[in-house]
Design a protein around this nucleic acid. Structure first.
Lengths: 262, 262
DNA sequence: CAGGATTACGCTTAAACGTGCATAACCCGG
DNA sequence: CCGGGTTATGCACGTTTAAGCGTAATCCTG
């Protein structure tokens, strides 16, 4: 077997993932005649780029049931709940709020108090289910083809459905935040929908767990200047927050335990 | 059987849970060639993540987050699962299927086998969430204002979204069945949506628990001649079934215990 | 209420892991 | 041609993880 260049190797790994539904680090190492270390590095990179999901012993393709929202819900749930507690206070009664898909927003939907009257619009079925529990919330579902990874409807139909609406507040999710506070997403259509929702909202709020700061996703969604409020955890890097604050964003730090604002 | 990685194993357990309604630790251990201890660990983790309910000897599925739907689920949960097992066999691979809102259809969505490829269209967020767990199902969400009672989107926007589609199979719910097999619904808009979906489907299947035969809902949806197949429980009144059969419907009786049919 | 089945818990082992570092290949501006 | 810088890779190290085993506690059943 002729020696492969790095991108070739990663492409082959992707192909095998798609074809066989899984890859083992040891297999790949012997197949490509490289050390398992190298393979692990590849898999780590690919996972960071959203091309696969890292598991012990190898990797699995994204969205094979393992990336269900419910699964993501189970990781860092506690942290997301803390963010949600704070974010909920930013919602003014009787306003029209867009809930973007995402586990953090699911936590926010669950955290809504029972006496809060609201018109909620969402493209994520799981969020719609959570909202149905809230007696005073009218829920509008945005239809379209469901993106497994995003966990919500995206694409032309979803955009079309949004085009007749305006929101008082947009809760937009992000897959990664760069140094200047720029948001990015893993999916092309997902990114487009987020941009569209932002453009139709008078106020935009982003809630992000700390790990989002070390993830770079391929598709840009918005710069810091385009959203108004960022809710972060108390272990976020203050230097980076200051940069974003300088762009004109309000930053709310959700302290664990006592959820107080700054 | 090739050795499975941890997330794969847990996914399979989930699949079996959804499909068979329960799992036994001992069975899973021998099936996956791991110790029961490992299986118990899996089940414990899954239970902690809210993916199943731990019981002595194995685990049971846990309903989705929706309370009202969940309540309805738990009432006739077991009966609906039996209906679902039978109804699933009526779904031909690679077809386009409309799932009307309703707890019975939620049970059907959960009962879909993992290897069934399908395009599913639904107006119920809870069903969309269940479908998202199925790796080979493309899910299209029908948007609109959510009707709390029906548990799905209804009204003008939902109708509009449906108007560009045609279905190979329509799983339509009913609130009541009258003496001649006529279907009825509690909601005006809900009834309209059902009629619209039926009109756009080449085949229509109704799954109804026995209590539906003694309920009369205010809005008529369809007569027996308009649907092709009715799945009922084994305690349904044969005389009434015969009347409906005379209208030209196939009737499939789902026997409890042995869910075997042609 | 006794006995077998099932379970949680702590411990152990081997595999897989991430990291830091060294090496070698390559690129590119002098 | 040459020397600094970058990149891909492999290796050694200590760490983490998954899974099995033994034991004692717990649960069902008759």
């Amino acid at each position: 077997m002729t020696e492969l260049m790095l991108p070739e190797r990663q492409n082959r790994i992707r192909a095998r993932l798609a074809q066989e539904g899984r890859v083992l680090a040891a297999d790949l190492a012997s197949e490509f005649s490289v050390s398992e270390d190298t393979i692990r590095r590849d898999l780590r990179e690919m996972a960071a780029a959203g091309l696969c999901e890292r598991v012990y012993g190898g990797a699995l393709p994204v969205g094979l049931g393992n990336t269900s929202l419910r699964q993501r819900m189970s990781v860092a749930m506690e942290r997301k709940r803390v963010l949600a507690q704070v974010a909920v206070r930013q919602i003014v009664p009787r306003s029209v709020v867009f809930f973007d898909a995402g586990s953090t927003h699911l936590a926010i939907a669950e955290a809504l108090p029972d006496d809060l009257a609201l018109t909620a619009v969402t493209n994520a079925p799981a969020i719609a289910v959570a909202l149905a529990e809230k007696p005073r919330v009218d829920t509008v579902l945005v239809g379209g083809l469901i993106d497994r990874v995003a966990g919500g409807a995206v694409g032309a139909r979803a955009i079309e459905a949004l085009s007749g609406m305006r929101f008082d507040l947009c809760l937009v999710g992000t897959c990664g935040i760069d140094g200047e506070g720029g948001l990015s997403a893993f999916g092309y259509e997902d990114a487009a929908l987020k941009q569209f929702a932002i453009a139709r909202s008078s106020r935009v709020l982003v809630a992000a767990t700390t790990e989002k700061f070390s993830i770079a996703a391929p598709y840009a969604v918005a710069k810091a200047a385009q959203y108004h409020c960022l809710v972060v955890e108390d272990d976020a890097d203050p230097a980076r927050l200051q940069i974003i604050r300088n762009e004109g964003c309000d930053i709310i730090v959700a302290a664990r335990g006592a959820a107080s604002a700054a």
